[in-house]
Design a protein around this nucleic acid. Sequence first.
DNA 1: GCCAACGTTGGC
DNA 2: GCCAACGTTGGC
Length: 157
Amino acid sequence: MSDTQYWLMKSEPDVFDIDDLKAVDQEPWDSIRNYEARNFMRDDMKVGDKVLFYYSNVRPPRIVGTMEVASEPYPDPTQFDPESDYFDEKSSEEDPTWQLVDVKFVQKFDNPVTRNAIKEEASLQDMVLLNRFRLSITPVTEQEWKKIHEMAGAELK
DNA sequence: GCCAACGTTGGC
DNA sequence: GCCAACGTTGGC
């Protein structure tokens, strides 16, 4: 019995795609400005948790590979940077509002799994992805994790 | 490019 | 504390 947890995290590939992650290997998942998504990173994620990498705001929206949580939570540096689009003047180094985790590349799928394919798969109807529009980090069950890999023709890693 | 969903802001 | 106005996300 493993205590590994599974997640899905959205990125717009124009901003950051899975090849960018593969190139750097590990990267802070910054710029999250939604409390529910932040709470998942701050309160629930553990080093070694498995994460589906999802492309949003692109056609077709799809899961393109996987990564894993690679750090404890820590303050998102972009919130302190006045030059950043994600600067938050109400946050402070003493009491930071936004926390993130690092993620590490695991694998890129040869056959990405589209949102449409997920919608058509009976066993994936309860995926939080389908039921919580606009939430950019969502939990995934072990069964969903395995089914997505099966649909991608990918090894479980 | 449109626009529905929905989180946030701010007037009262 | 309510809620209308507003801004953003993200599928289509």
